[in-house]
Design a protein around this nucleic acid. Structure first.
Lengths: 189, 189
DNA sequence: CGTATTTCTTAACAAATGTTCAGTAGAAAG
DNA sequence: CTTTCTACTGAACATTTGTTAAGAAATACG
């Protein structure tokens, strides 16, 4: 049931079976229906979620009153509001299920307890954060080196699942272009 | 001498004085002249640097044969090639001093030794990575919500030091626009 | 100091993308 | 089933940005 999470932990750090079981026991299942929120703007984020299945969308209102889609969280990724989770401030972003989504959720308290009780798990936290950093580096590179059309084609090639499941307007804001232009690009090929 | 680094560590984690001193002793000073490399494309990155003063530029050749400037590292930030450092693969990026730059450098070996000997330092590694993640989130948001001109004005307002010290062509690639267009924007106001 | 080389600027034009608005299709609500 | 609303499409036009090419300015180098 938590085998996907278990495997990822085992692939990342060396940890004894009882310690691993204890770690896993701190993650509670949470099932979201389509459009349910994992986190709402203005609330404090005190959880980290592991996506077992489905998809989450991280977005926030921007200066112009539109929604900016920052990221889509796919299965086997961790998701939280980094800024809210680490600072304790109110979240400036929403995290919402795009599809029916199964999560395993750990509370901040439990995570900190875990870190102090089993120090090796800090390594897992650190490596996970480093992983996210690498993903973001790639996303930045996509903007630095590619036009809107090239970014669209990249998604088409590498994450076609997004095009199939995500409303076009969300995808446009994820690509940093207008919905009309995305519609135009989509028709073109 | 290492007071800036010392302070940042103390502000981030609770660590005893002897442990802190030990941690600090692992960082070796390294002074780079303008245009010296901290890391060259194709070499393995087995160090993390703390920028005491000066500025580093992280860049790589892109598909089109140009240079893409991924990031400028300012004083009091940590810098490494995340992908190379964590995977052990050859680096796909260059890290070069834009100005005379003073670094404190720690070797991967020493860092891993530190992590295992003083587990609390893992927390420092994790929080530092989370910090970088937040910086990157903001950089992505800048691309999602702002035109080239708005991005330029943002830098003008928040990091004017870059405009004063960095060659225009590097800045253009950092903003994801052509040097000609940056020149045009700069004249405009 | 003069020359070569690189970087920056400028302008004209081309291409990409945004904006506005109208229409259509499909989903949700009654 | 009909109505309403929302999301998507399409086209015309405006604006932004890229490209090309030439010249000016700055820098490196003998």
């Amino acid at each position: 049931m938590k085998s996907s999470l278990k495997q990822i932990i085992q692939n990342t750090i060396s940890i004894s079976t009882p310690e691993l079981d204890f770690m896993l026991s701190l993650f509670k299942p949470l099932n979201l229906k389509k459009d349910d929120y994992f986190l709402e703007f203005g609330k404090r984020c005190h959880q980290v979620a592991f996506v077992k299945s489905g998809m989450l969308r991280i977005y926030y209102p921007n200066d112009k009153g539109e929604e900016t889609t920052c990221y889509f969280s796919l299965p086997y990724e961790f998701v939280t509001s980094f800024s809210s989770f680490s600072t304790g401030n109110a979240s400036i972003e929403n995290i919402q299920a795009v599809l029916p989504t199964e999560l395993f959720v750990i509370e901040k308290n439990d995570l900190e307890m875990l870190y102090s009780k089993i120090p090796i798990t800090q390594e897992f936290g650190r490596k996970s954060a480093e992983n996210v950093t690498m993903l973001m580096e790639r996303r930045i590179a996509l903007f630095l080196n590619n036009s809107a059309e090239e970014r669209y084609k990249f998604i088409l090639k590498h994450h076609p699942i997004l095009l199939q499941t995500v409303p076009l307007q969300y995808l446009a804001s994820y690509l940093g272009i207008s919905p009309q232009h995305l519609s135009r690009l989509r028709k073109k090929k």
